[in-house]
Measured scan of single mutants.
Amino acid sequence: SDPSEDRAPESARVGNIPSSTSALKVPQLKVAESAQGPAAAHTTDTAGYNAMEESVSREKPELTASTERVNKRMSMVVSGLTPEEFMLVYKFARKHHITLTNLITEETTHVVMKTDAEFVCERTLKYFLGIAGGKWVVSYFWVTQSIKERKMLNEHDFEVRGDVVNGRNHQGPKRARESQDRKIFRGLEICCYGPFTNMPTDQLEWMVQLCGASVVKELSSFTLGTGVHPIVVVQPDAWTEDNGFHAIGQMCEAPVVTREWVLDSVALYQCQELDTYLIPQIPHSHY
């Protein structure tokens, strides 16, 4: 159930021909089969995070001529859309010479989310990475209204306002976009420790780096000194050995919190207090 199309920051360009055919990675995205229709094609874990990302398996898109002007500035990904909605975005992107990729990268400028009429969405990996990267996180209605009015409308009017977990109007995407000089995790050293489900560890690490944190791979690698705040992030329900995560405190002095601390902080683009996310640790033995 991992969102495989989000696994690594590679891009698939639509609308320009790469210098070599080997560089072309066409979105071959799968549809989750469901008797209840597209709305039930998501699996949500206890964290309220949509693990099964969206989309559609299609034939290789038709490439435009390399001489045609390509908008190098805009690059989009989509999240939560049905196959039909994805194809509408594809046509919109081609019309406006926008790069459409299946994986979010540093070059991505827009994340197009499936939302309700009030621009509230589910939480997906692309949603988190879009906010963390200060990108435009907009409703699919931006595409449909632009098509209806036959011009590209202003993104401000379609920015995602909230999500089904953290609140319907928290304005996290807007706050992140306007606060890239004040990253929420700066001054923190974060170790993403142990197993994680539904989200590859490297993507979680990239997320906290985008928010200004330094990533530490091992508990023994924390910088011990003033001005640096170490934090260990774990996902308790992913551990097979009972309560192993309670013993992390015996290996390092850092506070240990659940992954929800990261996800909530990123969604709201406000660093949350650790208290409600802390995992009790077995104290050091004193002999």
Rank of each mutant, 00 (worst) to 15 (best):
Pro18Tyr: 06
Ser20Pro: 05
Gly167Ala: 02
Ser34Gly: 06
Trp136Asn: 15
Gln209Gly: 14
Glu253Thr: 14
Leu274Ser: 07
Ala132Gln: 00
Pro195Gln: 15
Glu189Pro: 12
Ile279Thr: 05
Ala132Pro: 00
Pro3Trp: 13
Ser22Trp: 06
Glu54Val: 09
Val78Asp: 03
Leu125Ala: 08
Val137Leu: 11
His97Ala: 13
Cys271Met: 02
Thr108Val: 14
Cys191Thr: 06
Phe128Met: 01
Ile147Gln: 09
Val120Cys: 04
Val26Lys: 11
Ile147Cys: 11
Pro83Thr: 10
Pro200Arg: 08
Gly194Leu: 02
Glu33Val: 11
Ser179Asn: 00
Asn198Leu: 12
Glu149Ser: 14
His97Pro: 10
Val26Ser: 03
Gln171Leu: 07
Ile248Pro: 12
Pro3Leu: 15
Ser22Pro: 05
Asn166Ser: 04
Ile248Lys: 15
Val257Ala: 15
Lys91Pro: 10
Phe141Val: 04
Asn16Tyr: 10
His229Ala: 14
Ala132Ile: 01
Ala8Ser: 06
Leu188Arg: 06
Ser20Thr: 11
Trp142Leu: 02
Ile131Thr: 03
Val160Tyr: 00
Arg161Asp: 03
Cys192Pro: 00
Pro283Asn: 09
His229Ser: 11
Thr240His: 07
Arg69Gly: 15
Glu62Met: 10
Ser1Ala: 06
Thr197Cys: 15
Ala267Lys: 02
Leu103Trp: 07
Ala12Phe: 12
Ile131Arg: 01
Asn102His: 14
Ile279Lys: 10
Phe92Pro: 01
Gly130Pro: 01
Gly15Thr: 12
Gly15Pro: 04
His110Pro: 01
Val78Gly: 11
Ala247Ser: 14
His229Trp: 15
Thr258Val: 05
Ala41Glu: 04
Thr82Ile: 13
Gly172Asp: 00
Leu100Val: 08
Val266Leu: 05
Pro280Phe: 13
Lys114Thr: 03
Leu88Ser: 02
Tyr287Ala: 12
Val70Asp: 14
Ala176Cys: 05
Asp163Leu: 00
His286Ala: 14
Phe119Val: 02
Leu274Val: 11
Gln235Leu: 04
Gln180Pro: 11
Thr115His: 00
Ile98Pro: 01
Ile147Thr: 15
Val232Arg: 03
Phe119Tyr: 06
Phe158Arg: 00
Asn169Pro: 02
Arg259Thr: 02
Met207Asn: 03
Cys121Ala: 10
Ser34Ala: 04
Ala41Thr: 07
Val137Trp: 00
Asp181Tyr: 08
Pro280Ala: 13
Glu53Pro: 14
Val165Pro: 01
Gln180Thr: 04
Arg13Gly: 10
Arg7Cys: 06
Lys95Ser: 07
Glu84Ser: 15
His170Arg: 03
Pro200His: 11
Phe196Asn: 05
Gly37Pro: 07
Glu107Gln: 13
Arg123Ser: 01
Val160Phe: 00
Pro200Cys: 15
Gln209Met: 12
Phe196Thr: 14
Ala176Leu: 01
Glu107Ser: 05
Ser1Thr: 04
Leu210Tyr: 07
Phe158Gly: 00
Leu103Ser: 08
Gly212Ser: 00
Glu218Ser: 13
Pro83Ala: 07
Glu273Val: 05
Leu81Met: 06
Ser179Val: 05
Met113Glu: 00
Asn243Arg: 15
Tyr193Asn: 10
Gly249Ser: 12
Ile282Asn: 05
Val165His: 05
Ala40Pro: 08
Leu29Pro: 12
Tyr49Asp: 03
Gln28Cys: 11
Ser1Leu: 06
Gly130Arg: 00
Tyr269Gly: 14
Val31Pro: 10
His284Leu: 06
Asp275Arg: 14
Asp237Asn: 12
Thr258Leu: 07
Glu54Phe: 14
Met152Ser: 03
Thr64Gly: 03
Ser79Ala: 01
Phe128His: 01
Ser55Leu: 05
Glu53Ile: 05
Thr108Asn: 01
Thr46Pro: 06
Leu268Trp: 13
Pro255Gln: 04
His42Ser: 04
Cys271Ser: 10
Ser22Gly: 11
Asp264Thr: 10
Asp275Gly: 14
Ile282Thr: 12
Gly48Val: 04
Arg150Ile: 05
Gly15Phe: 14
Cys191Phe: 12
Leu278Val: 15
Met52Tyr: 14
Val138Tyr: 00
Ser57Gln: 10
Cys271Ala: 15
Ser1Arg: 10
Lys95Tyr: 14
Ser34Ile: 11
Leu29His: 09
Pro18Cys: 13
Glu54Tyr: 12
Phe222Val: 13
Pro230Arg: 15
Ala35Arg: 09
Phe158Val: 00
Glu107Ile: 10
Val14Gln: 08
Val26Ala: 03
Pro283Gly: 03
Thr276Gln: 14
Pro9His: 12
Ala176His: 04
Met74His: 10
Leu268Gly: 10
Ser146His: 00
Phe196Gln: 10
Phe86Asn: 10
Glu5Pro: 07
Arg69Thr: 14
Ala8Val: 03
Gly15Arg: 08
Glu241Lys: 12
Asp6Met: 14
Glu178Phe: 06
Gln36Asn: 11
Ala93Phe: 03
Asp2Val: 05
Asn16Ser: 08
Asp163Ser: 01
Pro27Leu: 06
Gln180Ile: 08
Val234Pro: 00
Ile17Val: 13
Ala93Asn: 06
Thr109Ile: 00
Gly80Asp: 02
Arg168Ala: 07
Thr108Ser: 13
Trp136Ser: 14
Leu153Gly: 02
His97Trp: 06
Pro27Arg: 05
Val26His: 05
Leu125Ile: 03
Lys72His: 13
Val138Ile: 09
Ile98Asn: 10
Pro61Asn: 09
Arg259Lys: 05
Gly134Thr: 09
Gln281Pro: 04
Val89Phe: 06
Asp116Leu: 01
Val89Thr: 09
Gln272Leu: 09
Glu5Tyr: 10
Ser4Asp: 10
Glu85Ser: 14
Ser285Tyr: 02
Gln235Lys: 05
Leu103Phe: 09
Leu274Trp: 12
Tyr90Pro: 06
Tyr140Val: 09
Asp6Ile: 04
Arg186His: 13
Asp163Met: 00
Val70Phe: 09
Asp45Val: 07
Ala117Asp: 09
Glu253Gly: 13
Val216Gly: 14
Lys183Val: 14
Trp142Thr: 00
Pro38Ser: 06
Val262Gly: 02
Ala238Val: 11
Lys91Gly: 08
Glu118Asp: 03
Val165Gln: 03
Gln36Ala: 13
Cys192Leu: 03
Asn169Ile: 07
Glu122Ser: 05
Lys114Pro: 01
Glu178Ser: 02
Val262Arg: 02
Arg123Ala: 01
Ser265Leu: 02
Val26Cys: 03
Val164Leu: 09
Gly167Thr: 02
Ser11Thr: 10
Leu103Asp: 05
Gln28Asn: 05
Glu62Pro: 08
Ser11Asn: 03
Pro38Asn: 07
Asp6Asn: 13
Gly130Asp: 00
Gln145Val: 07
Val89Lys: 01
Arg175Ser: 11
Leu210Glu: 14
Leu129Cys: 15
Glu218Gln: 14
Ser1Pro: 10
Val215Met: 05
Arg161Tyr: 06
Cys192Met: 02
Glu54Arg: 07
Leu29Phe: 13
Ile282Gln: 11
Val89Leu: 07
Leu24Thr: 11
Trp136Pro: 00
His170Phe: 00
Thr99Gln: 12
